[in-house]
């Protein structure tokens, strides 16, 4: 099976229903994408597939063969992603950091779809969980990235 991740192609030989998350972390060693719940509940595993926020723990790898996948490792190569990361640093969003790669991916996906999101849109899209409660800082950073 051929996967295109961050612009690079990878050949993987794996069961078609393996979650993309396991392929990223275990097969390809890209551990920036985190495992939280494995049940599509938390968003720690969020990656972009064709620019859309996708929870990789519930994405059978077969269904994204040939798709354009982007992970946190390459987020700064994306112009929107770069703005998001800068805003994240400026707002000092992360606490423990565990959920943050997923948050950054979700924010990037949002801004790709809607460059100037309303507060409501931000609340509707930024639904990933954060045990440290960084929600206000996340919302502020998204607003800042949208202005940048």
């Amino acid at each position: 099976m051929e996967l295109t991740i961050n612009g690079q192609t990878h050949q993987v030989d794996i069961e078609p229903d393996t979650p993309l998350l396991w392929v990223l972390r275990d097969e390809l060693g890209m551990t920036g994408t985190k495992y939280g719940c494995g049940l599509a509940q938390c968003g720690a595993c969020t990656v972009l597939v064709h620019g859309q926020a996708t929870r990789s723990c519930v994405t059978p790898v077969e269904t994204v063969a040939g798709a354009k996948i982007m992970t946190i490792e390459a987020i700064e190569t994306d112009p929107v992603g770069q703005k998001v990361v800068e805003a994240w640093v400026a707002q000092q969003v992360p606490q423990c950091g565990y959920c943050q790669s997923g948050q950054v991916m979700a924010a990037t996906a949002l801004l790709k779809q809607s460059a100037r999101p309303t507060d409501e849109e931000i609340a509707g899209a930024m639904v990933n969980l954060c045990r440290c409660g960084t929600y206000n800082a996340i919302a502020a950073a998204v607003r800042e990235a949208a202005q940048a």
Binding site: P16, D17, A40, Q52, T54, R55, V58, T59, P60, E62, T63, G124, A125, V127
Partner: peptide, 23 residues
């Protein structure tokens, strides 16, 4: 639609088409 996007779409797809035979 809002609840779907936040709770269901990650697996069943924003287009409602699921993921092959897996979901």
């Amino acid at each position: 639609a809002r609840i779907y996007a936040a709770r269901c779409g990650f697996c069943h797809g924003s287009d409602g088409r699921g993921r092959n035979e897996w979901i």
